[in-house]
Write a protein that binds this DNA or RNA. Structure first.
Lengths: 143, 143
DNA sequence: GTTATATTCTACTTTATAAATAGACCTAAT
DNA sequence: ATTAGGTCTATTTATAAAGTAGAATATAAC
């Protein structure tokens, strides 16, 4: 399951992507939180995470706020989920961004669970990495 | 991410499926836990869950233990994950087995996140429901 | 330069849920 | 009756999620 962190982050950045098309000014955390009904302080952490990973850009001081660091068609849903949840893989031993061997795994190559979950990861990656914010906003989800 | 519960459950039932091909006697929790290096008491809860959902059969008393309730080709990985995690969906609003509307969702039909996650769910379901324990044990994971 | 506004950063508390553990209790075979 | 097993209740521990409070920092506007 997607964590709430990733879900809230997606909600916020999708709203940002929508609004960015209209006006170019950054948006305040408060406005984002209010519009999407998200816990403000939690959202603060989430936005900060995305900024540190280069997905969002922030502007301090008066008139400041958050804006997309790149164009909406250059940011994928997969990047956001990885930034906030660490991975899109159902199990860490098939993750590319956050690989970790299972605790008592005897042999990764013959692990049956790993084989199945590898397929799930690949299918998920294809969808999430193949969907940009622009696609999402325009409702153009392929596959 | 798959919970540890589901992962341990899969480990245990796959081991069971392998051993069942040889001998027909039920297997004890202790043996399962020892062989797969799983916390015994936690595994106890997991096996009980699967029994209550008709996936496993248990025999009380001396010489008892757990065995598959159906043949290995009649049990899918998807059934096990759903039994232990409630759903295979990345977000509850696209789950079939455990549907739940998102808290402050204004309109499910236009939700961009939902559209993407629906695709992920469908792709995941195809793989997990299309893979039986027999497939897993024989290393025959399609797709 | 001062002020207002907004992000950034730190720290702590609470609540909910996942993960793990302990022990008493029930069941069936011998 | 005894023994070997599952069943059930309760509790603890760890982590995710959320909320609270406040200080530090950066920037625009005056």
């Amino acid at each position: 399951m997607l964590s709430k962190k990733a879900k809230y982050g997606l909600q916020a950045i999708i709203f940002l992507a929508k609004e960015t098309r209209k006006k170019k000014e950054p948006m305040q955390i408060s406005e984002l939180a209010a519009h999407e009904n998200l816990p403000k302080k939690f959202l603060e952490i989430i936005l900060l995470d995305m900024r540190k990973q280069g997905i969002l850009h922030s502007q301090m001081g008066r008139g400041g706020g958050y804006s997309l660091a790149r164009e909406a068609n250059k940011i994928t849903v997969g990047q956001i989920v990885r930034a906030l949840d660490g991975t899109i893989a159902p199990i860490s031993c098939v993750s590319k961004s956050a690989y970790r061997k299972c605790n008592d795994c005897k042999d990764e190559k013959t692990c049956e669970i790993r084989k199945v979950m590898q397929k799930v990861r690949d299918a998920t990656a294809k969808i999430l990495d193949g969907t940009s914010l622009e696609d999402a906003v325009k409702g153009k989800v392929k596959f």
